[in-house]
């Protein structure tokens, strides 16, 4: 849940990048880190294994600007995508304000995407959240690879109602990365507005 600090005049929100192993969650954060002005970002933390697989989480704090005199800060987290790190994924979802679901467009990862989305829904439920009610943006990543399946079939499996904003991306080159982040930030702020009276 967002943290509103009147004393420091800040709103802090927590955004989580979720998705199957090697889908590009960390790559999204690295790109955002590289392309953000020094005064708008904090240090990026990666708790990773020796082979650079995410072990616990990546963390990147961003300051977007001011709304009505309040600094808006977004804390970006990734979860470890590998199936056996489920306990860690649950911990990172605590207090989440919005989720980017990063799907891997490669044909052989189709099932892994579906499983990871089901896992996200179950883990959210366990924390008392309803997937259908919280801000979620879907990113179809790795569109630049030759074995990418069509966006239509990904959408049918991952966003069948079309309720969630979705974007095509190639996070290595940065395509779609900021579009995805902005869409989620927007949804989260709109939710904050709705939640207040």
């Amino acid at each position: 849940m967002a943290f509103i600090n009147y004393s420091a005049r800040e709103i802090n929100c927590k955004l989580v990048y979720y998705g199957p192993g090697l889908c590009g969650k960390t790559t999204n954060l690295k790109y955002i880190y590289e392309k953000t002005a020094a005064d708008a970002k904090g240090k990026m933390i990666s708790l990773a294994t020796e082979t650079e697989r995410t072990l616990f989480f990546d963390f990147l704090p961003l300051a977007l600007g001011e709304i009505r005199g309040f600094k808006t800060r977004f804390h970006l987290y990734t979860v470890p995508g590998q199936v056996f790190y489920d306990a860690s994924r649950k911990l990172i979802l605590k207090g989440v304000d919005g989720v980017v679901f990063v799907a891997d467009s490669q044909e052989e990862r189709f099932e892994a995407n579906v499983e990871s989305l089901e896992n996200l829904k179950a883990n959210l439920r366990e924390q008392g959240y309803d997937y259908d009610k919280i801000p979620v943006v879907i990113q179809y990543n790795k569109r630049d690879l030759p074995n990418a399946v069509s966006v239509e079939s990904l959408r049918e499996a991952l966003n069948p109602t079309g309720k969630n904003p979705d974007f095509e991306a190639a996070a290595q080159s940065g395509k779609g990365v900021f579009e995805t982040l902005k869409a989620l930030a927007r949804l989260v702020l709109q939710e904050l507005k709705k939640g207040s009276r």
Partner: peptide, 29 residues
């Protein structure tokens, strides 16, 4: 959830955003 609420003492100026996030991760784990 990893948000810093207050800080006091002589360590002012250290990267408290990182500190808060890592402490929360540590406690959660």
């Amino acid at each position: 959830n990893g948000q810093l609420v207050t800080e006091a003492g002589e360590l002012k100026g250290i990267d408290t955003t990182s500190l808060a996030s890592l402490v929360a991760g540590n406690v959660a784990a």
